[in-house]
Nucleic acid binder design. Structure first.
Lengths: 207, 207
DNA sequence: TCACGGGTCATACGATGGTTTGATCCGGCA
DNA sequence: TGCCGGATCAAACCATCGTATGACCCGTGA
């Protein structure tokens, strides 16, 4: 509901690319064509929702490896797999790796469009979530070290008095840091602050 | 790390069942054999982690339909699909529906054991999460209607004074309800209460 | 009829939270 | 050298929270 979506088409067969391209454009989607995996990987990150339509059979590397590489690079764009020579283990691997769909050629146009629509919707949601988390995290980084400490201890349920004890400072100083944290985090209430702390803790925590 | 896991084997071929049975028992897993989908569906719910090893080809219904039916019934036990006659669309449908894995016969014993182990681990985690949510929800239900209202408004960030205004009661009464909610919810701090409210809101909300 | 739980409220008190004013100290940086 | 942000603290003040005591009303069920 925000930006115009962009679909990356990765297939070494130019005819297939053109065909997919015109199909996707016919429903109002913008597209980029890539003949190789490198072309996709070297394309600059787009600041809008989108997905990748990825052929499994590519010159050099497999589409499955490309999918894995995207994950490894932290590029979490949804992938719709297509292939002319698919087998079950291949499709299962792709789906396990998070593919939105796995279509075997020839597929019906509508099936691809459905898969792409689903992928874009998924990306849109993920991006919105990421934006929220990034905003909170960004504000958190503007806090001074002490303010960050106080915020974490406070949202963990500690009283100002306890925080003061743990940090070896006076309670009045804790209150000042706490107030600054609330202001900088743009938290109207303490409940907001707790939720922001949880939001930051929910993602990222390298297990 | 809690209870002994239970694996349901659903296959109409007795030889296959026995073979799977002995394989799974050989690694210390407990099993139940089912020749039909109905046998599985009519088996009582087990109060321990487990999974289903489900043949796609069953007399009458398809394993895919059984999987769907489990979901529809709210039985969220993980499913490992196996089949002798699998094709890509079938495997994709199963994986989309949440299957842990989709193996085509003949498969290596180790592949099945890996899939089952993964499924059980997933179930264990889900069950632990469910237990936490159920415990909180259970305590929430012991709150009187007023106490529930006050808890929700408080965790939404409202001040006692505002809550009193919205409910048309005095602030002192709000404090009493709030205190009772804290006690009954077993929340040591207000931050705990906020997290409990979020935990309950996170699941269930039929979107 | 009585007991009980739920809901309501007042008074009173103490603990906790939040802000302002004003001040000191320190390290980095122009 | 002087400025600035970060950190520290005190005093004073007010708002808010939390709980205890005691009280009243009401509907339900023993």
């Amino acid at each position: 509901m925000n930006d115009r979506a962009l679909v990356h088409i990765v297939d070494d067969d130019e005819d297939v690319r053109m065909s997919l391209d015109s199909l996707l454009r016919s429903v109002g989607l913008e597209t980029r064509e890539h003949a190789t995996a490198d072309s996709l990987l070297s394309s600059e990150a787009d600041d809008r929702p989108g997905c990748v339509v990825l052929d499994v059979r590519l010159p050099g590397v497999s589409g499955l490896d490309v999918q894995q590489q995207l994950t490894r690079l932290g590029i979490r764009i949804p992938v719709v797999m297509i292939t002319g020579f698919g087998d079950v283990p291949m499709s299962v691997r792709a789906m396990k790796a998070g593919a939105v769909d796995f279509l075997t050629k020839p597929f019906r146009d509508q099936d691809l469009l459905d898969a792409v629509a689903m992928a874009i919707e998924r990306d849109r949601r993920r991006r919105n979530d990421d934006i929220d988390v990034a905003a909170v995290r960004g504000r958190y980084l503007t806090l001074s070290p002490r303010e960050q400490q106080v915020m974490m201890l406070a949202t963990a349920g500690k009283l100002n008095k306890q925080i003061a004890g743990e940090l070896g400072i006076s309670e009045i100083t804790v209150k000042i840091h706490r107030g600054a944290a609330m202001r900088k985090m743009d938290a109207r209430t303490f409940a907001d602050l707790v939720r922001m702390a949880d939001l930051m803790a929910a993602v990222q925590p390298r297990h």
